[in-house]
Amino acid sequence: MAKALKDKSPSSIASSSSRGKPVKTLRPLKKPAGKGSRRILLTEAEIYEVFRRFHAASPEPKGELLYVNPYTLLIAVVLSAQATDAGVNKATPALFRLADSPEKMLALGEDKVRDLVKTIGLYRTKAKNVIALSQRLVDEFGGEVPGDRDVLETLPGVGRKTANVVMNIAFGHPTMAVDTHVFRIANRLALSQGTTPLAVEADLLRVVPPEYALHAHHWLILHGRYVCKARKPECWRCLVNDICLYPDKTPAP
């Protein structure tokens, strides 16, 4: 079974030294005047430097969900809603050994699917959605996962984030899948001031340099998962600490 592995250890994106010549046009950083003030957005040069460093540390970052083909990727992402990738990965190997196509999933049946994914949160609803979307794929798309985000969003259990992940990983589109990590990091780094996932997605699509767009959401997810954590960001290990405008940086232990 294929696994989407990172090129290096999770912390490498934070601790690797940057390569190449630094951008010389960075302006002096300023902090917000207070908690109620609007954060100063980064310049184009600063944004480029952020993603240049992420790329230097991990040129081809990968998602952490287990999958074997576009269909199993879709199912894994659907199952990961309001659950951790690690938790989903404990359940899906057994499921995908039995059903790696919508036809096989339908033959397995909802009761068996529910039993196999019962360790995952909301497993009853998710099992129902897995069967329903598999039926749609068979009935309307010849058993294939459509490479169209708008169509994907019409499938049971598939929202915009899930559709963006599938479009990015399975079909190579530079989409921005905004989960809690991406939302947090985009705002902390002042890549966006968006207050909704859709607003953050629009900002990232606008400001991320095109050459880094394909992998941008992976870098942000991994950075949020392993370094820039919600409760206590490990700022002393951050690869872009000197550029980040987040005012409440955590000091080194």
Rank of each mutant, 00 (worst) to 15 (best):
L65P: 01
L65I: 10
Y71P: 00
L73A: 05
I75E: 02
V78S: 01
V78Y: 00
S80V: 14
T84Y: 01
T84M: 09
D85T: 08
D85I: 12
A86T: 15
A86Q: 11
G87W: 01
V88R: 02
N89Q: 10
K90T: 15
K90D: 11
T92H: 01
A94H: 06
F96K: 04
R97H: 03
L98C: 10
D100W: 01
S101N: 06
P102K: 08
E103Y: 13
L106V: 15
A107M: 06
G109H: 10
E110S: 13
E110G: 09
K112Q: 11
K112D: 06
V113H: 09
R114C: 13
L116F: 09
T119F: 03
I120L: 07
L122G: 10
R124V: 15
K126T: 08
A127P: 01
K128E: 15
S134M: 08
F141Y: 10
V145Y: 03
V145E: 02
V145K: 03
P146R: 09
P146H: 10
D148K: 05
R149H: 04
L152A: 13
L155N: 03
N164V: 08
V166D: 02
N168G: 11
I169K: 01
A170Q: 05
F171D: 06
G172K: 07
H173R: 14
P174S: 13
T175R: 09
M176K: 03
A177P: 00
T180N: 05
H181A: 03
V182A: 12
F183G: 06
R184W: 11
N187T: 13
L191F: 07
S192A: 14
